[in-house]
Design a protein around this nucleic acid. Structure first.
Lengths: 230, 230
DNA sequence: ACAAAAGTGTTAATCTTACACCCATGT
DNA sequence: ACATGGGTGTAAGATTAACACTTTTGT
């Protein structure tokens, strides 16, 4: 039996947020060590007595203090033997979404700095983190069309125009405003509130909210969320 | 830095085949060791200097000698600390499809026996392999509807009725024969050959083949394969 | 002639797309 | 009064769903 093995197991999290009509990703920079002065995904080694998912949650807590809205396993990167120059490391990556109003990040510690970056204006990234990020972005684009995860990037109550812009900017597509609204409302999982947003210009717009319970119920009955526009 | 870690890394493959109108999965039984007399997925530990994907290919080769038609990473199982009673093991699982005409399996070695099982008549499985298999089956069902992977479970040339039965039996749904045929043919990626199949009964049926090159070309241009029937 | 599976078309209903004007507010 | 974004309906076209009889072969 192959008992001697020298492979380290790490987890990394790709944390997406949405603000100012743009998709952002959370990166950290360590002040010491190999990663000194290079931006990297949130992550670290898994402890012997810790599940993968709790390792991710621990790293998120320790390194950023952020509370995520959605978290799922993305992919395990282990086909590049030298992805970490120190030794063989495989990384189980996780995909996370946070509500843009919770954008507060733990104040910089002595050891680390955390910052949001526009996905289209990324700094140089450590290891193969650019590849991981690219994979995550593709997953986000795909999931957006068949699962109601866009709501996990928005505040509890949001403007329809924000939802629409989120779809346009992440999918990098033009969307017909009328058809989009009709489609979303036809699902019956987004509800009007009696409140109004506070944009500076133009006619005041109602705030809407996503009814997750109703979605879960419908989903169990076979309903499939789907947004697909030419 | 956490340099000491005691986690073993394994890969497992869920190999699906299709025969006699049923979905089958390839399992192995070791004659010695912990897995003695229990059926398990093909798999084993990853070597230090070996990529994950080559570990899977090596295990497939060593344990079954089978040539797969499709292989992709499925999920990494590592949230049950005791999934292996010996020590902490995480398993990166892979999802494979084989052409049913290549159903030949390496003759039993001294150490192992390999066998196909109907997915609905499974024996007791080792570790959390039943969970892994369930995850794989869900992936297969999902992918079948939006990627042309069903062809990887069929011989190069196949009867339309086999394709149809494959969809019905894996998706566990009734499908309208006429609409199904119309839909598939409308994509222009399945072509009639001039040969006929040799079923015993009824009117002889033409053999068809999947034009993968054409699919790849169309896919690049934005074509999306999709089969979705009520 | 009969059993068994293959092959084939039409229609109604639904869903998707394309498209433009008025509304409510702040300045 | 004008600038800014919010809110709304309709008609043509495309897609899907439902449905049954004829054809070819072997026995």
């Amino acid at each position: 039996m192959e008992l001697q093995q020298n492979i380290k197991v790490a987890v990394d999290a790709i944390v997406f947020g949405y603000a100012n009509n743009d998709l952002n990703v959370l990166l950290i920079k360590q002040k010491y060590g190999v990663l000194k002065n290079r931006w990297a995904l949130v992550g670290g080694f898994v402890k012997d007595n810790e599940t993968l998912i709790s390792a991710v949650n621990r790293e998120l807590q320790e390194e950023t203090g952020i509370k995520v809205n959605y978290l799922e396993q993305l992919y395990t990167f282990g086909d590049d033997l030298d992805r970490d120059p120190r030794f063989r490391v495989i990384s189980i990556s996780y995909f996370a979404l946070v509500n843009s109003t919770k954008f507060l990040i733990k104040a910089d510690t002595d050891a680390e700095e955390a910052k949001w970056f526009n996905v289209n204006e990324l700094p140089d990234l450590a290891f193969d983190h650019l590849l991981i990020l690219k994979t995550a972005k593709e997953r986000l684009q795909n999931k957006l069309t068949y699962q109601p995860i866009g709501f996990d990037l928005l505040p509890k109550e949001f403007l329809f125009s924000d939802l629409e812009n989120l779809y346009c900017s992440i999918l990098e597509k033009e969307i017909d405003r009328r058809n989009f609204r009709k489609k979303i409302l036809s699902f019956g999982i987004v509800e009007e509130t009696s409140k109004f947003g506070n944009k500076k210009n133009g006619r005041p717009a109602k705030l809407f909210k996503f009814n997750k319970l109703k979605y879960n119920k419908l989903h169990k009955e076979g309903f499939i969320f789907e947004i697909n526009f030419a």
